[in-house]
Amino acid sequence: MQVSITHLSTAGVLLEIGSLRIVTDPVLDTGMRRYGTGLPGLHLTRYRGTSLTAAELGPLDAILLSHPHHVDNLDEGGRALFAQTREVITNPHGKHHLKGVSNVTVLEDWGTTTLFGHDGFKLSVTATPALHGPRWLPGTRHVSGFVLRWEGQKHGVLYLSGDTVFFDGIRQVANRFEVHTAVLHLGGVNLWPPLPPAIKFTLTAEQAVQSIKMLTPRQVIPIHYEQAVWAHFREDISTYVQAFQAAGVDHLVRWIPNALSWPAADGSDDRRFLFEI
């Protein structure tokens, strides 16, 4: 089946699979913003936002939230999508941050739910473990990845890593599923100050290579890497490109444009990447 993926911004993508339209971790605020975190002296700076609006995205069948408690995975603009979405899927901790949202489905790690298209098309969503930083920091396990499966997949599933570092949970995904396409959250995120630079919250170039070798996917789609968007994204595209080339996995990687570059020089607003799975 042909799948369309559009990278919106940060960890947000629009997936069009059969008759289903699914968005992940939507961030749609515009302009430069400085966000508080609730911790003294710690804030997140976003230099620019996507030019897309909730209205332009239109009706959705589902939103997959790896974790709604961080503003670079769900902001106020992203929350505007709830009203035009049939179902919001997240983990148990995430539900506590979605007060007043009635259409929430909660999945524990390895829990599964099914989405139904208007034409009877069925797609299963399985939550997978993620580790958003060092184990000793509170809340780093309150994050999910997702595996998407549907009838007719020829060469494995679609895996969305969520915000995670490399850890045993990725090995568990590799043991349970044949992965066709891995959508990996990069960036080598670090919050300095106050945390030491060595502490990371998403995949570094080295960890991305480890993940690819562990998952053995047929293709890799990187997202969550734009240093031009967020100040806390520490590793740029060139660092990843060099690491992928050195490891001999660069032929698997598909760098796709995102909505920040719309419209294109030729006036096109189509940034979809199409692939068979």
Rank of each mutant, 00 (worst) to 15 (best):
L252E: 09
E178R: 09
P68N: 03
V209S: 14
W255M: 05
I5S: 01
L123R: 04
F177R: 14
G78D: 05
P196D: 05
S268D: 03
L148Q: 09
L42Q: 07
G139F: 04
V143F: 14
G41N: 09
G77P: 01
G120P: 12
H232I: 14
V104K: 10
A55Q: 05
S144Q: 10
E108V: 03
L137V: 12
T85Q: 10
P222Y: 13
F201D: 02
S268T: 12
A174M: 13
Y240K: 12
L44T: 04
D250I: 13
T50M: 05
L158M: 09
V101E: 11
L81A: 12
N190M: 03
H93A: 14
L64G: 00
R272N: 10
F116M: 13
R234W: 06
V173Q: 03
L186H: 10
H67T: 10
D119W: 11
S9F: 03
A55L: 07
S124Y: 00
W136E: 11
H7F: 03
A80L: 12
R272F: 02
K200L: 00
D163G: 10
H251F: 08
V106P: 01
N175W: 08
F121L: 02
H224I: 02
H251D: 12
I89C: 06
L28N: 09
G100M: 14
K122A: 15
T181P: 04
I199N: 01
P196S: 06
P217N: 14
E151V: 09
H224D: 12
G18C: 13
V183M: 11
L107T: 13
S4C: 02
D72C: 09
G117E: 10
A198F: 14
S161W: 05
E226Y: 04
T128G: 09
N73L: 05
W110R: 08
P222T: 15
A264C: 06
V88F: 11
R272M: 12
A80S: 15
V189E: 12
Q245I: 13
L8M: 08
G38F: 12
R234F: 02
M32S: 11
L107G: 10
W192T: 15
A259Q: 01
D61V: 07
F121M: 04
I277A: 08
H224R: 13
K99M: 06
N73F: 07
A246N: 12
I63Q: 04
E87H: 10
G41W: 10
H96N: 14
N91S: 10
G18E: 10
D163Y: 07
K213G: 12
T202R: 01
D270L: 04
L203Y: 15
A243G: 14
P129Q: 07
E76C: 08
S51E: 01
L195S: 08
I199E: 06
D168V: 04
S19T: 11
A265G: 13
I256Y: 04
I277L: 09
A265Q: 05
P134C: 06
L20D: 13
L74S: 06
G94V: 07
A228Q: 10
A198N: 08
G139M: 02
F275R: 00
T216H: 15
I277D: 00
R218Y: 09
G58P: 01
M32E: 03
G38V: 06
L64M: 01
G100P: 15
T112R: 14
D236H: 15
R86P: 00
G267P: 07
L52V: 04
L60T: 09
T128F: 06
G100H: 13
